[in-house]
């Protein structure tokens, strides 16, 4: 019954995002993993997961859940509706004192349930001039708990210009979402090494970084 409302709302959000950004996906030659996987992306705007979600093929999209901050997505009725009902987000309490369970375990359970996840390993929106903040430990902890899961780096380009922090009106600009080849955690790989390797895999997809290297 609820799907009667949430499906059209999801479609409207995707249509709106596409009208604003004419978003174009760039796929890796190997294609996307068939099994549940983790899409880890750079984070500069609240619209990030919507853009990733919008470009995924419908059969993958329907079983892909974003991981998002509970304090933001539970703040108002509208956000709660969009976050929980429309996008079925795995909401994580970032404040340790308010946590009722281990967020990593909840993400692993979502994977076990057959869902893919969209994860932002920087942990917060990047509002600096740096292309990418250092990764928090979440991605490592999750990869350690489920080492057989594919990790797909996803670079979202230009969305921060569409809607910079504190602005209400989005500006139509063309965005691209670049998917890289999947990586996995290696046996006995250290936290630092893994986070550095996954961060480099993501950064390599940025057109600015790739452009500077060329």
């Amino acid at each position: 019954m609820k799907a009667l409302i949430t499906r059209p709302v999801a479609t409207m959000i995707v249509v709106f995002a596409r009208a604003m950004t004419a978003v174009r996906a760039i796929w890796p030659e190997s294609g996307l993993p068939k099994q549940p996987c983790i899409y880890f992306a750079n984070h500069s705007s609240h619209g990030d997961f919507i853009l990733v979600w919008a470009v995924l093929p419908p059969w993958i999209r329907s079983r892909t859940r974003p991981v998002a901050g509970a304090e933001y997505w539970l703040a108002t009725k509208l956000k709660r509706f969009i976050g929980q009902d429309v996008f079925n987000a795995v909401l994580i309490e970032r404040d340790k004192d308010k946590r009722t369970g281990d967020p990593i375990v909840r993400m692993a359970e979502a994977l076990d349930g057959g869902s893919s996840l969209i994860l932002f390993p920087e942990g917060t929106r990047n509002e600096t001039e740096e292309p990418l903040l250092p990764f928090r430990s979440g991605l490592f902890n999750l990869a350690t708990l489920r080492p057989e899961i594919d990790l797909v780096p996803v670079w979202i380009d230009n969305l921060n210009r569409v809607m910079p922090k504190g602005e209400i009106v989005p500006i139509p600009l063309i965005c691209t979402v670049t998917f890289g080849s999947a990586i996995r955690i290696l046996p006995y790989e250290s936290r630092e090494a893994f986070l550095e390797r996954s961060r480099a895999a993501l950064l390599a997809l940025s057109p600015k970084v790739a452009g500077a290297a060329a």
Binding site: A22, I171, P172, L173
Partner: peptide, 18 residues
């Protein structure tokens, strides 16, 4: 949308662009 994507706009231009 294509043209502005290639320009050097900054945060300060947000309302002018809107």
């Amino acid at each position: 949308r294509e043209f502005v994507t290639l320009t050097n706009t900054r945060r300060a231009d947000h309302w002018a662009l809107a």
